[in-house]
């Protein structure tokens, strides 16, 4: 039997599902809604820079971003298959989804490196 790469992508999908479910709601709410709407005051630039630049935060953000993107890649890929039944575009969709997630992860790694 041909060895399948599905369990590998599924594991990343699962890890991304957990980390995004635990952390994205609160971070999105604070940074994307509460601060822009003025409900709470924004920490100043220097302090945010220090926070985002610390090794622990960097590793955490890299994991959060790349696993969330891989979670999307796997789930969205199968939504396209099942929802729109575009099974004949199988390879193209897989390249778009996983490729996009990998590019996004590389970009995240690069900018985290620069901080």
């Amino acid at each position: 039997m041909k060895k399948s790469s599905e369990p590998f992508w599924w594991a990343l999908f699962g890890a991304g599902g957990v980390i995004s479910a635990l952390f994205i709601p609160v971070i999105l709410f604070i940074q994307g809604l509460a601060i822009p709407l003025g409900w709470i005051e924004s920490p100043n630039y220097q302090h945010l820079y220090q926070l985002f630049g610390s090794p622990v935060t960097r590793l955490f953000l890299l994991a959060l971003i790349s696993l969330s993107l891989l979670h999307w890649a796997h789930r969205f890929r199968f939504t396209l298959y099942d929802g729109l039944q575009v099974k004949h575009l199988n390879v193209l969709i897989a390249i778009f989804c996983y490729g996009g997630a990998i590019l996004g992860s590389l970009a995240a790694g690069y900018y985290l490196w620069l901080i």
């Binding site: 994205i24 979670h71 999307w72 969205f76 996004g104 995240a108 900018y111 985290l112 901080i115």
Partner: peptide, 16 residues
């Protein structure tokens, strides 16, 4: 979920 991951990338880029 992917949208917010991209927002985070843009935020880190802006910070850097």
């Amino acid at each position: 979920v992917a949208f917010y991951a991209i927002i985070l990338i843009l935020q880190i880029r802006a910070l850097s």
